[in-house]
């Protein structure tokens, strides 16, 4: 649905642009294609790698590993799993829910959700390519560490 709205937005702006200035619109499209073509090798590589990672660390495998509640090491484990995998939200949240049902604590599940979204080990090379090593290390590193703080507070609040 959000993909469709993205297309809608692109079509609307593109039409406006075309009505106002054909030459500029052409240049915008050339630019769009050039940028896309430039990142395609990295993107396709990441996508294959992500497919492999999701398959090897499937929801079933993860829930088998985490089992019953496992304290800080359980948090560390789910944190690392979240950081190295890239599972789409609509798969991750039901998975997180089933982990809760299996007896995992809120903290473990919260760490998993946070690192899953904020930390991308697999996509780090791509992020470095765009923003350099320092930004990538600080953003991912702090996101990982602070996920534990968020999880702890969530455990108290929820």
């Amino acid at each position: 649905m959000f993909t469709y709205s993205l297309y809608g937005l692109a079509v609307i702006f593109l039409s406006f642009s075309f009505l106002k200035d054909k030459e500029r619109t052409k240049q915008a499209l050339v630019k769009a294609w050039k940028s896309l073509e430039k990142v395609l090798p990295d993107f396709t590589a990441v996508l294959v790698l992500v497919g492999l990672a999701i398959t090897l660390l499937s929801p079933q495998v993860i829930s088998r590993f985490i089992g019953q509640d496992t304290g800080f090491f359980g948090m560390l484990f789910t944190g690392v799993v979240g950081a190295v995998t890239l599972i789409p939200g609509f798969v991750a949240f039901p998975l997180a829910d089933s982990l809760l049902q299996l007896g995992a604590g809120i903290e473990q599940v919260a760490v998993f959700v946070s690192t899953l979204m904020m930390v991308g080990v697999i996509t780090a090379p791509l992020e470095i390519r765009y923003f350099g090593v320092k930004q990538t290390l600080i953003r991912n590193g702090l996101s990982f560490i602070l996920a534990f703080g968020i999880a702890y507070l969530l455990g108290v609040l929820v």
């Binding site: 993909t3 993205l6 297309y7 937005l9 692109a10 702006f13 593109l14 642009s17 500029r24 619109t25 240049q27 915008a28 499209l29 050339v30 630019k31 769009a32 294609w33 940028s35 896309l36 993107f43 396709t44 996508l47 294959v48 992500v50 497919g51 492999l52 999701i54 398959t55 789409p88």
Partner: peptide, 29 residues
């Protein structure tokens, strides 16, 4: 493996064209 990889590609190939078109327009306008 096949299903996940194909899903990844279809998801990205769906999202990237409008993103890059918007980027091109942003750059120009």
């Amino acid at each position: 493996l096949m299903r996940n990889t194909v899903f990844n590609f279809s998801q990205m190939l769906a999202v990237l064209p409008p993103i890059f078109i918007l980027l091109g327009l942003l750059d120009q306008w």
